[in-house]
């Protein structure tokens, strides 16, 4: 089995499954949010009321977590395929991890910050 210390799920099969599970969550979230914006004439109260509701907060945090996992696996794959010098590759993976951690905290702050 392929195992790498820097990938998300510590082995290829776990990454393969996580990438698909997170893709389905992100697809559902995308369809819901874009559908909501297209079907409603959204004003401030309606928009903020939606994101203040518990189901939407759960859905949003799920989407943030799915985004972090999906982006990690995707960016890891791209960096591992195209960046060959090992120091540069690890520096890039570290930077990606740091940015994704920032997205995670920021996403939680946006969802619960109002």
């Amino acid at each position: 089995m392929v195992t790498k210390a820097t990938n998300f799920g510590r082995n290829g099969v776990s990454d393969w499954i996580l990438q698909r599970a997170s893709a389905v969550i992100l697809a559902a979230y995308t369809v819901f949010v874009i559908g909501y914006l297209l079907l409603n004439d959204v004003d401030a109260a309606m928009w903020q009321g939606l994101f203040a509701s518990l189901p939407m907060q759960i859905f949003s945090i799920l989407a943030v977590l799915a985004f972090v996992a999906h982006a990690w696996i995707g960016m890891w794959t791209v960096v591992t395929d195209y960046v060959k010098p090992i120091r540069v590759r690890y520096a890039a993976i570290m930077a990606i991890a740091l940015i994704l951690f920032a997205y995670l905290v920021w996403g939680v702050a946006v969802v619960f910050g109002n």
């Binding site: 928009w47 994101f51 982006a71 995707g74 960016m75 791209v78 996403g107 702050a109 109002n114």
Partner: peptide, 22 residues
């Protein structure tokens, strides 16, 4: 995919602002 990894910054900033009161 790579573009969205970077572009999520703009979307997140816009979402955060849009949820910050009227």
């Amino acid at each position: 995919g790579v573009i969205m990894f970077l572009g999520a910054f703009v979307v997140m900033a816009l979402l955060g602002t849009s949820l910050d009161g009227p």
